[in-house]
Design a protein around this nucleic acid. Structure first.
Ligand SMILES: [Mn+2]
Ligand SMILES: [Mn+2]
Ligand SMILES: [Mn+2]
Ligand SMILES: [Mn+2]
Lengths: 220, 220
DNA sequence: AAAAAAAGTTAGGTATACCTAAAAAGAAAA
DNA sequence: TTTTCTTTTTAGGTATACCTAACTTTTTTT
C-alpha cells in the first residue's frame, strides 16, 4: 500500500530528524532533500498526516508518529539488506550500491525480505557501517567514532562512513581506505586539521579534515 | 522510463501473441489478462502506439513492433532471472516465486541484471522450465514436449510447466512431481485421457489429462 | 512597530493510469 | 439487407504526484 513517493518522504523525514537533534522537519529542507518543490511537499505532508504517519502543523514542520517511524525503518531495513546483498553476493563496489538499493527498497514482500535476511546470515551492519533495523524497527547501536575525533597516536579500524555520495566513496577507494582498514593517527595539522595516517602495510597517507569528518572508526 | 503498467501490457501482449498463432491481440483479451476494463486498455494501447511500441488499428487489435518486443523480452528476462534466484538462492518453492518476481521484474538497472546473471551462472531456463532471453532478446529454444503427447511405454524427465498458477503448482507438489522427476508412462485411459505413471522410486501415480496437458518433459 | 525577507500554503494546471456510462463500429443472425 | 449482438472506442470522472504562480504566515531587520 505505501507508494514509492511515500517511502521516500518517510525515509527522508526520519534521516533529517536523526541527523540533527532538532525535533521538527521543515517543508523546505524536505523539498531540498527530495529534489522537489515546497508546494509539492506541503501537499504530500497533508496526505501523510491524514494517514496518521506524521504530525503536521501548518508553518511548524512535521514529526513522524510511531506508525510513520516504523514505516520509515521498514524501508531503511530493506535498503540496507539489499546493499549488503549487492556488495557481498553480487560484488558491487561501495559507490555503486546506493542507486540500486534505492530501487530495490520499494519491493514490497515480507516473504522476500525474510528469506533474504536469512540467506545473508542476518547481518547487523550494511556496507557503509550503518545499522540494519530488525523486523520490529529496532536499530542496533554501533558506538562508532568519527575518525576526526581521534588524537595521535590512536589506532583504529574503519567501520563505516557518514556520507553516501558516490564521489566521496570513490575518493575513499582512490585513497585505499575501506571498511576494515587498520590505521594509526600520526599527526594533526594545527592549521587546517588534516590528518597524517599510517595505514595497513605501514603506508603513510594524509587526508583532509573534511574527509576525516565522514569516516567512522572503532578505536583499538 | 518504462512504467510498471507499460511493462505489464507489453509482457501480456507478447505472451498472448506467442501462446496462440493468431497475429493480433484484441482489447478484450488484454483487459481480461490484465484484470482491467476494456476502456482503460484502449487508452493505454493508444499511448503505447504513440511511443512506437506497437501497431494499433482501431477495432483491429494490436501487434508489438520490434521495439515493443524487445521491451517485453527485457521484462521477461528480468522476471525469469529473479525466479531462478528466488528458487536457487533463497529457497523459494515453485508456487511462491511468481508473485515476488512480478515485483522484482520492474527494477530498472542494467548493472544489477548483469551482475545477477553472472552470479547465477548465466542460467538458460527458469524454475518453470521457461527459457531466459539473453540481453539481446534472443530466446533459447527448448524443444520440450507435453507430457500428454507421450504414449506408453515412453520414459521422460519433467522439465517444466506451461501454467504458473499457484494452485496448479501446489497440486504438482502434492503429487510429488518436480523438475527433474523421472517417469514412465504406463497406460492412458481411453475414456478420460488420464495417465498412469510410474515415478522415481517405482511409485505408481495417476494424473488427469488436464494436469498432463500442463507438464513439459524431455523424452528419454 | 513597520517594513522587508524568508518560509510555507493555496490555487490552478499537467501527466499517468485507472474507472463507469454512453456511443459507435464491426460481426453475426434473422 | 436490415436487425441484433458483441466488441471497442469516446467522453467524462477520480486519485496520485508532480509543477508554477500567487498569496499568507512567520521571522528578521531596520
Ligand atoms: Mn528509493
Ligand atoms: Mn548504506
Ligand atoms: Mn510485474
Ligand atoms: Mn517462470
Amino acid at each position: 500500500m505505501p507508494s514509492i513517493s511515500e517511502d521516500h518522504y518517510l525515509k527522508s523525514i526520519y534521516h533529517l530528524t536523526s541527523r540533527k537533534k532538532r525535533k521538527p522537519v521543515f517543508t523546505n529542507e524536505l523539498a531540498q532533500a527530495l529534489g522537489l518543490r515546497p508546494a509539492s511537499v506541503t501537499g504530500m505532508l497533508q496526505r501523510l498526516a491524514a494517514q496518521r504517519l506524521l504530525h503536521y502543523r501548518p508553518y511548524q514542520g512535521v514529526q513522524l508518529t510511531p506508525k510513520g517511524r516504523l514505516r520509515a525503518l521498514a524501508v531503511i531495513r530493506k535498503h540496507r539488506l539489499w546493499e549488503y546483498f549487492l556488495v557481498e553476493k553480487l560484488k558491487f563496489r561501495w559507490h555503486e550500491v546506493h542507486a540500486v538499493a534505492d530501487l530495490l527498497e520499494h519491493v514490497d514482500s515480507d516473504l522476500l525480505i525474510h528469506r533474504l535476511d536469512a540467506y545473508l546470515g542476518y547481518p547487523k551492519l550494511d556496507p557503509h557501517g550503518d545499522p540494519i533495523p530488525d523486523e520490529n524497527g529496532h536499530v542496533p547501536a554501533t558506538g562508532f567514532l568519527l575518525l576526526s575525533s581521534l588524537r595521535p597516536p590512536a589506532q583504529a579500524i574503519i567501520t563505516g562512513v557518514t556520507e553516501q555520495h558516490p564521489a566521496f566513496l570513490h575518493h575513499l577507494e582512490r585513497l585505499n581506505l575501506h571498511r576494515g582498514t587498520r590505521l594509526q593517527v600520526r599527526q594533526i595539522s594545527e592549521y587546517d586539521g588534516s590528518m597524517d595516517l599510517l595505514i595497513d602495510p605501514s603506508q603513510p597517507l594524509t587526508i583532509s579534515r573534511q574527509t576525516a569528518d565522514q569516516i567512522l572508526v572503532n578505536s583499538l
